[in-house]
Design a protein around this nucleic acid. Structure first.
Lengths: 125, 125
DNA sequence: TCCATATTTCAACGAATGTCGAAATATAGC
DNA sequence: GCTATATTTCGACATTCGTTGAAATATGGA
């Protein structure tokens, strides 16, 4: 992931309204939520929310799809993966004890059993 | 983790200079780097860097320790864990296939073999 | 004590950001 | 075509943010 893309995603998330929207949509899953319902849920004016949604979409964090009169927004899990990987890059540099807790925390947060234990090769060191 | 703390950390990272500093210190490990060397590495004026370091410290992302005339700054891995966990919270809601890729990506990014395979209980569904 | 080095603090400036009201656009149903 | 609903776009405003130059503080050594 490129540095500038990471900045866009981080600053998109670094605002109370947008973070609330993103977390709401992460919880909502792939079906997403129409803009109007999002506005009601997070307590933002429709036009204000529209501006924030635009920023989240441009950052790649959300996808949008029109369904008749409503537009559904959904979180893009890949965008989150990429950002996390970028932030953790080279985080141990040969000292596994440093980033192992980070890894474990991420695994726990994922709140589901590991898909299948695939071969894990240490990239460095 | 509290929402406001997450906002502080995200906006601390959402700026090119600060993100460069944080990543540099993540790579540098627990020994950290003196402020002057950081300034030279990322190409910021000492006073500008000082302001950015203050923001990163206040967000809890860095620790600082004076050593004689220099002040060493180091990344706090726990702060990153907490932020990642917060962003991934409830990310699957009963649909493991959604966040499993995120979890695997995080595990790969950690670039070291899993510390020890401790019991992994699915938190939800 | 005096000086050099390392870092921070202060005040000020231009640029970017978030929110609001009003108007515009898009879709569905009659 | 007309009306109602859903959402976006536009223009303006106050606020916040990042950088700069100058001055201040802290530490170590002669």
């Amino acid at each position: 992931m490129e540095s500038s893309a990471a900045i866009y995603r981080l600053s998109a998330l670094a605002q109370p309204g947008r973070l609330a929207v993103f977390r709401l949509l992460v919880r909502a899953g792939p079906e997403g939520i129409p803009a109007g319902e999002i506005a009601a849920a997070v307590g933002l004016a429709p036009n204000t929310l529209s501006a924030q949604l635009t920023i989240l979409v441009q950052a790649g964090l959300l996808s949008s799809a029109r369904e008749g009169r409503v537009i559904r927004y959904a979180a893009r899990p890949d965008a989150l993966s990429e950002l996390i990987v970028y932030l953790m890059e080279d985080c141990c540099g040969g000292r596994p004890e440093i980033c192992a807790p980070v890894q474990e925390a991420a695994a726990r947060a994922a709140c589901c059993p590991p898909a299948k234990s695939r071969a894990r090769r240490p990239l460095r060191a």
